[in-house]
Design a protein around this nucleic acid. Structure first.
Lengths: 142, 142
DNA sequence: CATAGTAGTATCCTGTTGTATACTGCAATT
DNA sequence: AATTGCAGTATACAACAGGATACTACTATG
């Protein structure tokens, strides 16, 4: 149960650092958006198709914010009509560890949930820890 | 500019995995809350004091959600009056990589912003990439 | 000629998140 | 005897994120 961070001071400092990080990456879309750009530049509608359920308004806003934080660069080509691409910057590479950790957790957590649901007849800890309704809590689970 | 994930398929799958992960960890408080519990069990008011600005209503809700996802366990001691502690579960360890990555990024990003603000007289890329108002964008920066 | 695609913007609306304030009932402290 | 701390709940409200739908002006395709 012991972790690397265990003094009161490093712990408080970590809370601040995490808060800073989340301030920049918050919301439902920023990280998925960055991931969807990892295999090269994409155009607006292309992204919208890939990130099922994102509306143009929200996508537009998220892209603007990522641009301001220098994770994404917007390139306009003066074709007729204009075409616009979005691509990741060099700086965005500093997010790779976060993305990889989230990805690994997401994958493992989904498997855990599926396993849980299969053996859901066993309720030994039901009183202390209510059996979560995982099926409703993860959206896709195809 | 090449990363590990670069085929269309692995990229789409990663988006799903990230979405799953964020589904469980979303919001402003869950990760900071978990971090604040890394140096041992804490009581309700103790947490509230440590996480400046969280209201009891929100804290209560966040703790309930973390409990349902089995990251936190709530222990009630029948002292008079009852005392309650919250502590991290074994399973919560699977979040350590995420937390460490976010922490490292948060720390480095804050330093980058401070550096940017010092040399803010240089505006060579102002037209393409508006100089972000970092001072307003990070909340603490004491 | 109608449809589809381009890169978004404009409005309106809902739902969650967060804030503010007050309150509980009991015990220990001042 | 009054205040403080405990672990929250209750109520009302404000703010913001996000969703639904429609629309622009232009071009290419069927």
């Amino acid at each position: 149960m012991e972790r690397k961070l265990h003094t009161k001071e490093t712990c408080k400092q970590s809370v601040t650092e995490i808060t800073d990080a989340l301030y920049v990456l918050n919301g439902k879309w920023k990280l998925p958006l960055i991931v969807s750009l990892t295999n090269g530049p994409k155009r607006f509608n292309e992204i919208q198709r890939e990130l099922k359920n994102i509306t143009p308004k929200v996508l537009s806003k998220e892209l603007r914010e990522l641009e301001q934080n220098e994770f994404v660069i917007r390139k306009v080509f003066d074709t007729v009509p204009v075409s616009v691409t979005y691509e990741l910057t060099e700086y965005s590479k500093c997010l790779d560890d976060i993305i990889e950790a989230l990805r690994a957790f997401g994958q493992q957590h989904r498997e855990r949930i599926i396993g849980k649901n299969k053996s859901s007849s066993v309720h030994e800890h039901a009183a202390e820890l209510p059996e979560p309704e995982y099926a409703d809590e993860l959206e896709v689970l195809k």
